[in-house]
Design a protein around this nucleic acid. Structure first.
Lengths: 190, 190
DNA sequence: TAACACAAATAATGTAGTTTAAGAAATTCA
DNA sequence: TGAATTTCTTAAACTACATTATTTGTGTTA
């Protein structure tokens, strides 16, 4: 079990004692994922939030018409879940899948709630995490509404080069909200 | 000074003692806003987060080409700020303006930081606030990428009827990321 | 080595949404 | 109140992007 990356992730924002660190790790479950493995299925129950130790995951929504929209990617040191389903216990809107062989640490909803009671300091940690996630989504939403596809593509490539190089163009297109064909055109004439 | 609505807003998620409530309110500044008043100017410094007691505010981005994109509206019982600028101290991307005569309680960044140290319980409150904001933005972003304008309009009207009835169609269009002309067409044929 | 599945490029055609412009209706304000 | 300003509607021309189809490339498995 490798909790080093997670503990370092936490220590960016708060300080835990050795005992608290130990306690935190007992709440986690390590999972090894093969390429293509499904972590959460759309329509299912989302009962955990995941920290990525290694590899890359994608969270996407599949519409009734069969169109995929990528909500987020997560690589090492990122947290990922369907936060709406995790919080409300409603059916998940998103599927979360490993794009490559990956390793994650899962924190169940029950353990998440317990953990915050046992180590109240972690409220601060997750407050900062949620605040940063909110900021990211707000800025992305603004870009999506105010910019043409070409600029959205340029911004994505500049902001997340390490993620982009692991992705197919089809996956990038589904994150930008355009078709792979149109992304191909954008790339050709730039 | 009317802090009732704010204290009730806080008590939805955590319990404060009378002393803590008192302390909280001393950190706040009440502001009365006339219709059209600017609370934060794009390019300026965002040094507060605001709780809306009464009225309605709008946060929007103005592009170099002169196109306005509304990032959020806030009515009574909502919190509003440019969270990115508030957190990073960078220049604000957004302008926040009162659409009607309004009353807000402002919590400065310095007081926000102090408050979280003096009443650590509030970390939980703001964690929940940020988490809900994150969820809202993620769902809105998904709608924006996966749905045509007509459905986005229908969803907005259904989700926020009390806000919608206070807005002009131009303001609604700028929230949906479409032109007022096209919104007019959508409304005509539905 | 072929056969397969999938990723990417290209091109023709179709459509959702924009732009521009003009007139009518509603609000603002002196 | 009346004039000025802004909002809303309608319509024609235009553009960004989608759809459909075909082709080429590429790594995988038989």
């Amino acid at each position: 079990m490798s909790f080093g990356a997670l503990l370092q992730n936490v220590s960016k924002h708060i300080e835990l004692t050795a005992i608290e660190q130990e306690l935190f790790t007992t709440f986690l479950t390590e999972k090894k994922l093969e390429k293509g493995a499904i972590v959460l299925e759309q329509g299912g129950i989302c009962n955990a939030i995941h920290f990525v130790n290694e590899g890359i995951l994608r969270a996407y929504f599949l519409s009734e018409e069969g169109k995929e929209t990528t909500v987020m990617f997560a690589i090492s040191d990122w947290w990922i879940t369907d936060m709406h389903a995790f919080t409300t216990h409603k059916k998940s809107l998103l599927t979360i899948q490993a794009l490559e062989k990956s390793s994650i640490l899962s924190l169940s909803k029950a353990n998440f709630d317990k953990l915050l009671i046992e180590i109240p300091k972690l409220e601060r940690f997750f407050r900062i995490l949620m605040q940063n996630a909110y900021i990211r989504e707000q800025l992305r939403g603004l870009d999506n509404l105010s910019l043409p596809a070409k600029q959205k593509y340029a911004i994505f490539m500049e902001k997340y080069p390490s993620i982009a190089k692991l992705l197919t163009q089809k996956q990038i297109a589904s994150y930008l909200g355009i078709t792979p064909e149109f992304l191909s055109i954008i790339r050709a004439d730039s």
